[in-house]
Design a protein around this nucleic acid. Structure first.
Lengths: 137, 137
DNA sequence: ATAATTGCAAAGAGTTTGCACAGCA
DNA sequence: TGCTGTGCAAACTCTTTGCAATTAT
């Protein structure tokens, strides 16, 4: 009862575009960019394919409390930072990644369910917004 | 230029109801409960007051990738768990909280902006959903 | 009296979906 | 030919907002 998936230029374009960008684009950002190559692609198709990729483990949703859902084509574990001023969503390299990953992957707890993952986004001001803030202070 | 805030029974009701619950309710959950005491309160008022509390540091939004925004009246740092099956959002007690908090509060990085906080939600199956899964396996 | 707060309903933003058609296997 | 994927637009969900009425100070 497997559902067959079939080759499609639109789906390829969405995944390629998602992987090309490291700014964790929204569906709308991808739509506007892909439209340059496929002028009649629809926003619905972009959403459908993004959801397809998330279901098939080829992309992840990054949770944010406001605005549109951000997608990431890099499914390897890594950390994110979100600027609370401009909304930019960036990859964040930590020096003690191994240790933090260990703590997050295997949290010590008496919780009776099963913990299989986590969503983590650091917040603050990005370089540019921090600079602007200092200038106006 | 300070904006005065004025006492209001509706606002009190929203905050009281939010604090009473430890299940990180949505605006709608609160609305339906508060309506029992104030039948003509509107959903807009609930949203307005929740936003007011978030702005004034009396509540926080918990980021989730799907469904409605969850609110928490407990603004002291603590950890959350979300069941990917039933959507329940629970407080999570960890045994090594101090150490993890330290790593998260002061991440070692060469990032040029300023990191001031983080959003973290552990995911997996809650006790009940884990049980159900085992039974049907 | 003055301005903050509310109820109501409409508007807005983001995302999903039904349907007929296109296109891969 | 089958059935998957798409474009389009409408529907849907969640949240915000304009406005006139209400209410606290």
């Amino acid at each position: 009862m497997e559902v067959q998936t079939r080759h499609s230029t639109r789906r390829d374009a969405v995944l390629e575009c998602l992987r090309k960008h490291h700014d964790h684009p929204t569906a709308d950002m991808l739509y506007n960019e892909i439209r340059r190559d496929y002028p009649n692609i629809s926003l619905g198709t972009v959403y459908r394919n993004l959801n397809f990729f998330v279901e098939h483990g080829e992309a992840v949703r990054i949770p944010v409390t406001d605005g549109q859902t951000r997608f990431d084509g890099n499914v390897k574990p890594h950390f994110h930072f979100r600027c609370s001023s401009c909304g930019a969503l960036l990859d964040l390299n930590l020096e003690d990644e191994r240790q933090l990953e260990e703590s997050l992957d295997h949290p010590k707890t008496d919780f009776k369910g099963s913990i299989t993952g986590y969503d983590l986004v650091f917040t603050g001001l990005c370089k540019d917004c921090l600079k602007k803030k200092k200038e106006t202070a």
